[in-house]
């Protein structure tokens, strides 16, 4: 017996995901297939993405501008930070555009709306795995060649946590932006620029050791900083930020998550009326 009325509580999300698991797989499959339709290089593109970006950064920031990279080979330094950033950025961006890009979906049939952002994370996660493999290959190659890179064995077990944290954070931020821009689209238009600014506010192409005063404080406020600095310390034994920041970040992340899911569920009930 299904009852439809205003402000109705929908089915438990975990049961929904279980029931619609084939749909989730179809969504991910479809998104992945569609990106590379009618391209020649097709499946090679995800491999080139971070590689190309890191190369450009090495030339500009390291060779040209001579930014210090904490005694770490620049290419690896940039690629490592980009791993985390790219995951965060593409996830946030795609999730924030759900009502614009998937709006027509919502007017077709009922399905648990949260499946769409979940499929986006899964899709981005696959790209993350691909990029990470490439990073590891190059890392090992450079180790063998003889570069002086210090691996921090103690911290390696926390690596999955870094990605899980970023996944939850970008999921929440993306949902928030999509909710706030469902009816009035202003926020969606500036979120791209906002992300660009955030890129420079995060110590990806520079080291956090050189920050002091206001910049240091702002760095603490940035929830993406800690994971980026942390992943670099795993692979290069550079310094990590203080644990206080980690605690604050995690609490913010979890709160954001529950708020954004609640918000999203409420907005998606009527979004068809105005999106």
């Amino acid at each position: 017996m299904k009852i439809i009325k205003k402000n109705n509580k929908h089915q438990n999300i975990f049961i929904s995901i279980l029931e619609y698991r084939f749909f989730l797989i179809q969504l991910v499959k479809r998104n992945l297939v569609l990106i590379y339709k009618q391209t020649v290089l097709g499946k090679l593109w995800p491999l080139l993405n971070i590689f190309l970006q890191s190369s450009v950064f090495t030339i500009i920031f390291s060779n040209l501008l001579k930014l210090p990279t904490d005694d770490v080979p620049p290419f690896l330094f940039y690629m490592c930070g980009m791993l985390v950033w790219f995951f965060f950025q593409s996830n946030t961006l795609k999730t924030s555009q759900i009502f614009t890009n998937f709006g027509h979906f919502f007017s077709l049939a009922y399905f648990p709306r949260l499946l769409i952002p979940i499929s986006l994370i899964m899709e981005n996660f696959i790209f993350l795995l691909i990029n990470f493999s490439i990073f590891v290959l190059i890392y090992i190659a450079m180790l063998i060649i003889g570069y002086d890179i210090n691996f921090n064995l103690k911290l390696i077990i926390f690596l999955p946590l870094v990605f899980i944290y970023i996944a939850i954070l970008s999921f929440s931020v993306g949902l928030f932006i999509s909710c706030l821009s469902a009816k009035y689209r202003d926020l969606a238009l500036i979120s791209n620029h906002g992300l660009q600014l955030l890129f420079f506010a995060t110590p990806i192409v520079y080291s956090s050791n050189y920050l002091d005063g206001t910049f240091n404080f702002l760095n603490y406020l940035n929830p993406v900083s800690y994971p980026v600095v942390f992943i670099k310390s795993i692979f290069f034994s550079t310094e990590i930020l203080s644990t206080n920041i980690l605690i604050v970040n995690t609490l913010t992340c979890i709160t954001l998550f529950f708020l954004s899911v609640y918000f999203f569920n409420r907005v998606s009930r009527n979004v068809v009326d105005y999106a």
Binding site: M1, K2, I3, I4, K5, K6, A109, Y110, N270, V272
Partner: peptide, 21 residues
Amino acid sequence: KILSDITEPTSGEISYSGKLI
């Protein structure tokens, strides 16, 4: 649209049993 649970009613309710497509 309301019956398919795509949008909410302003008031009132619909109830049905079984799978609706």
